[in-house]
Design a protein around this nucleic acid. Structure first.
Lengths: 130, 130
DNA sequence: ATAGCTGCAAATGCTTTGCAAGGCC
DNA sequence: GGCCTTGCAAAGCATTTGCAGCTAT
């Protein structure tokens, strides 16, 4: 709890009640994939009612401070990943689940990067069943 | 023109005025990436005013018949790709552009597929500048 | 005290849908 | 003629925003 406050402060985030609850849930040591809504539901189960607007704000605050990774896999829902290391994903659109691939993946045979551009990241998504 | 009608018919799509215009634009031999809106704008320049609802319907009809590939890269816009071969992309979110990677890319080091699942496709997105 | 945060309600923006009118076979 | 398609206007949804009240420092 004080750890969490510390943690937030060290990321230039004021440790408010809501942020402490959200960070406490997200950064409990287990990697998680959440959407604003799944997070809201999950917190509600734990009797923590936080307005959706705040959840959206907080996820973006965390994201902008590098505490979360953002994943756009389907058009109608943005996922946030608590694992911020470089890694890739198995994804099932049908079942809406997401599994981290933590092994080292190598992408070979890329053509040269377009002029005056830099590669920011390479994202590999392994789509499952159709 | 009759080619286009033929083409639509052979894909179980009734060749209506609107579909002929849209297919004529999309499948002119050059690979294209469009969104519903960019397509609408592009057609409007050519004096073809087609309602957005119809454009959405048509893009999905084409997609469902395998004439287009669908790409979800940013949450607020779905792209359709006239190149339906297996291929990958360079993508700049900032500049909103998309370039096909037609070279053969190899992804090495994938872990084994989750139990009872099959790989549908592997998608590699090379994100540019940030 | 005051700059920052919360949360409601309303707005936004892409996409879908209901449905009446029109077009293709 | 009958079924499919179009397109308007309205609905749907995830997400964002304005703003008044509250809170951390």
């Amino acid at each position: 709890m004080n750890d969490i406050k510390q943690f937030l402060r060290s990321n230039a985030l004021r440790p408010t009640k809501q942020r402490i609850v959200i960070a406490g849930y997200l950064f409990d040591g287990t990697d998680k994939h959440v959407t604003a809504e799944s997070l809201s539901t999950e917190l509600a189960k734990r009797k923590h009612i936080i307005s959706l607007a705040t959840i959206y704000n907080t996820l973006h605050d965390f994201y902008e401070n590098g505490l979360l990774k953002k994943l756009t896999l389907s058009a109608d829902r943005v996922y946030f990943d608590t694992n911020t290391d470089d890694h890739h994903h198995f994804y099932s659109e049908k079942e809406q689940f997401l599994i981290d691939i933590n092994k080292n993946i190598k992408v070979n045979g890329l053509p040269k990067t377009p002029k005056n551009k830099k590669i920011n990241k390479i994202e590999v998504i392994v789509h499952l069943d159709k």
